[in-house]
Amino acid sequence: MRKISKSRSDQDYDDFDLDMDDIELDGQPLRSAMALDIFISFMTILAWIWLALMVVGMGIALYLTMVGMIPGFEKLADIPDNVITIWTGVKVIGAIIAILVLQELRKISKTLLRGDPFVPRNASRLRRIWMTVAIGEAIRTALMFMVMLYVWKLDDLNFANSWFGDITGLNSGSKEIPLRWEVWSMVLILIVLAQVFRQGAAMREQEKLTV
């Protein structure tokens, strides 16, 4: 008894001696939850393949920087080595973030399958998701900014007709900081939703202990 009133005053709903996830539920999982779970698992596999490819790409870039030209990669010769390395590094970070987010989504999906997603643990998972996306995007912006600075410094360097300029988006030529507003707006939406979810989970917690 005393334990409960103590943890209640701490506002920490995860600290009950009674495990919220163990309480019998009358909730039924949605039929689409199963499809969603399979889709997330599939995306996780794709993300791992993507990460493997990007790590190989970064390995090649590092080899080009440190050792020298590999036959077949002559096309890359007119692009500064460190630009390629940083750019592949950005891709590796992107893949890692995708995997981290997908792992959290899978855990949330498991609670959906159990029929009761409104648990405090899911609230902290949502918080972890937006933090991962925000930190990853901040790192990406910093790295891409480094690439931009490098490109701006070299006047004779021209990406205008290069395939590399196309895929990196450096072709536009204008000097703008590589901020992606769509990602930051998504982070903002995720923050708001995570907060709403935290409140909802706390309410559900109260409801679970109502007999």
């Binding site: 008894m1 409960i4 109260q206 202990l209 007999v211």
Partner: peptide, 9 residues
């Protein structure tokens, strides 16, 4: 939950 005094309401 009711018997062990864990119930809130």
């Amino acid at each position: 939950i009711l018997k062990t005094g864990k119930a809130r309401a």
